[in-house]
Amino acid sequence: WVPTKREEKYGVAFYNYDARGADELSLQIGDTVHILETYEGWYRGYTLRKKSKKGIFPASYIHLKE
């Protein structure tokens, strides 16, 4: 896992994603996520609506905010 280059990196989910394991994070369309790390097509972070739950999710489900 590699920390993100920018201190504040955010994105928005444009697909729903159902977590398949305890380390994964479920997403709903429109969720804003804070991205902490990246690795081979995956991000690690949390949604702003539930900051206490961190997990991994596919990068392809996220539109990055500039």
Rank of each mutant, 00 (worst) to 15 (best):
G55P: 00
L48E: 10
L36V: 07
H63N: 08
W1Q: 08
R6C: 15
G45C: 07
Y17A: 01
L64F: 09
A13P: 02
D31S: 04
T47M: 12
Y61K: 07
G55H: 05
Y61N: 07
Y17C: 07
S52M: 10
G45H: 04
F14L: 15
V2M: 12
K54I: 15
K51A: 11
A22P: 15
D18A: 11
A13S: 05
E40R: 10
Q28A: 09
T32Y: 15
I29N: 03
G55T: 03
G41L: 06
L36Q: 08
G21W: 06
R6Y: 11
L36G: 01
R49W: 11
T47C: 14
Y43P: 00
K50C: 15
T47R: 15
K5E: 10
R44G: 04
L48C: 15
L64S: 02
I35M: 14
S60E: 12
R6T: 12
R49G: 14
I56Q: 04
E24H: 06
Y39R: 15
S52N: 12
G21R: 09
K9R: 14
W42I: 01
H34F: 14
K50E: 15
K5M: 10
Y39G: 06
I62S: 01
E37L: 07
Y10S: 04
G45I: 06
T38D: 04
E8L: 08
E7V: 11
K54N: 07
K54H: 12
L48D: 11
K50S: 12
D31F: 07
D23E: 12
G55I: 02
A22W: 09
Y46E: 04
E40Y: 06
G21H: 12
Y15R: 15
L48I: 11
G21F: 08
D18N: 12
V12I: 12
L36C: 15
K9Y: 09
K51M: 09
Y43L: 04
L48G: 06
P58W: 05
G55L: 03
R20H: 07
I56G: 01
K53H: 10
K65I: 15
G45R: 03
Y17I: 02
V33I: 03
K5L: 10
V33L: 05
G55D: 02
S26Y: 04
L36Y: 06
P3N: 05
P58R: 04
V12G: 02
A59R: 10
R20S: 07
V33A: 01
Y61F: 09
K53Q: 12
K54Q: 12
E7R: 11
P3E: 09
W42Y: 05
Y17N: 00
G45D: 03
K51R: 12
A19H: 01
T4H: 09
Y39D: 03
I29P: 04
V2I: 12
T4G: 10
W42V: 00
G11I: 05
D18T: 14
E66N: 13
A22E: 12
R49D: 13
K54L: 14
K51N: 08
I56L: 11
G45N: 03
W1G: 09
K54F: 12
E40C: 12
V2Q: 12
G45V: 04
E7I: 10
G30W: 06
R49Q: 11
Y43V: 02
F14A: 13
A19C: 06
K9T: 10
K65M: 15
Q28D: 06
A59K: 14
K65N: 11
L36R: 01
Y10D: 04
E8V: 11
Y43D: 01
R20F: 05
E66C: 14
P3C: 09
K9G: 05
V12D: 02
S26R: 04
Q28R: 15
E40W: 10
T38K: 15
K9S: 14
N16V: 07
T38R: 14
S26F: 04
R6N: 12
A13R: 03
T32C: 15
V2T: 11
P3M: 02
N16Q: 11
K54D: 05
L48A: 07
G30T: 00
Y43H: 03
R20Y: 05
R44P: 02
W1R: 08
Y10I: 10
